[in-house]
Amino acid sequence: MNDEPLLIAEGLTKYYGRRLGCRDASLELYEGEVMAVVGESGSGKTTLLQMLSTQIEPSAGRVLLYRMRDGSVQDLWTMSEPARRFLLRTDWGYVHQDPQLGLRMGVSAGGNVGERLMAVGQRHYGDIRATAADWLSRVEIPRSRIDNTPRTYSGGMRQRLQIARNLVTAPRLIFMDEPTGGLDVSVQARLLDLLRRIVAEMRIAAIIVTHDLAVARLLSNRIMVMKDGQVIEAGLTDQVLDDPHQPYTQLLVSSILPA
């Protein structure tokens, strides 16, 4: 393990026209660390996640540094587009809130999981399929469903498939936008359990957007609380949730996690 940060962002700001999406957000994320971003709807969580994962360009604040596998630190915005896209589909993952955005709905589960392998040049069908089958088991999808498309999957299965599709290249960093959103409570619990186990096993760093403080509590080491496009409080998850300083955070904690 390296004690330099994996990802450094400074002053990320995004305006949609004149509307503020997110202002002046900074963070440092370390290897294997799980960061939760919480806040109410419209507070800028997705905007921040998309800036961090280079899916949208910030209006201001272009410091976004990433420590590559070889130890070199790269500025993600001066990196060439092919190199950045390569990074995105090998060393990173992005789990969308809506699995339809993160999956190819017309392609079998095996094809969905195998895509990244093929994208990095694997050309042995049998190996690709075996790896895909293995990953399906790891996310608790029966291997017998490998040739079905996600259209035939339940919401929880789709989300687990999305996770397998992202993790198959053993990324070091994964972004997740409300991975448990829209799922039944029991399905959520199972997914959370799975996420916690996998993130710990693979020692993968993660930034997880959620408006559910219980999710943040369960999965994250650190937490950022957002309101009106700004980070208003940040720190170790247990500390922030047990002893919130900002009145807004206090409100959040008291309303969602009744004593």
């Binding site: 094809g111 195998g114 093929m118 399929r129």
Partner: peptide, 10 residues
């Protein structure tokens, strides 16, 4: 290759 993969799977 995903397209060819799907072919073989099917």
């Amino acid at each position: 290759h995903v397209k060819l993969y799907e072919d073989i799977a099917r």
